[in-house]
Design a protein around this nucleic acid. Sequence first.
DNA 1: AACCAGGGAAGAT
DNA 2: ATCTTCCATGGT
Length: 292
Amino acid sequence: MKMWKEHAAVKGMYDFDYVLSRMCFDPLIKADRGERWVEIPVRLEDEKHIVRVQAAGDTQNPEFLIQSDSLDQKELLIDYIYQLFQWEKDLSIIYSHFQQTDLAPLFKKHQGTPVVRDFHLYDCLMKTIIHQQLNMKFAYTLTSRFVERFGEQKDGVWFYPTPEKVARLQYDDLRKLQFSQRKAEYVIDTSRLIADNEINLDELSEKTDEEVIQEITKIRGIGVWTAENWLLFGVGRDDFLPAADIGIQNALKIFMNRDKKPQKEEIYEMSKDWSPYRSYASLVLWRSIEKN
DNA sequence: AACCAGGGAAGAT
DNA sequence: ATCTTCCATGGT
């Protein structure tokens, strides 16, 4: 039973069905592509809320219905959803920008691909560490085990464990889930830093790209790839292209008809034209090598 | 059965 | 500073 509903009309273009298809890769996300909705877990000051977002329009005329039974936090939750899906951003401007670059055909084919943020900064960081160097299938399996074992579920919607909870775990608790020793250390040690307030992700997310990368890569287990992915998917920044990412390299190899994957230096060079929207280039490149 | 996967740290030049 | 090796496990 939903206590309130809110309608949202979004400027430009927005391919919500693609967003849903991506979310459905993640077994932890409760979504229905046929009925075009997803239920978002939102933690606000220790309270767990669930917000349902449902598509009402189409890519060229995006409209949405937002619903929740958390009556007291309505305005805050609506704002949260807008930031999550980045509805205030007009994707037709970004589309125009890329029509003057070599990626024009990809943007024509995949119109309205938005940067959608992960549900929480901490969740994103943990997920990104867990996903390091693993194929997507096993990466999602491992993340699911982590959340289903130590997180919390409410009305069928999964919430990641808090940093405080993960900080109290032993490395062996994660090894039992088939984490490597290293990965177990990275996840738990980073959570301890956060729980002890030596790292504050909310404050960090306000700083410049360069400051974030410099600070966060000081943490053992977090390199440049993880920092860039956190900025892109966690914070929702516009201008990141993880040049070391194997998926980006493969996509560029195919798009440019090469026989070898381009390396980091070459990728940085060719991506200059894509700035200040390199995150959107990343998204369509990843999208270009998806099956279906 | 080898090689790869949406890397990163530690050791070796 | 930059290059190489090892970590750890599932997928193809």
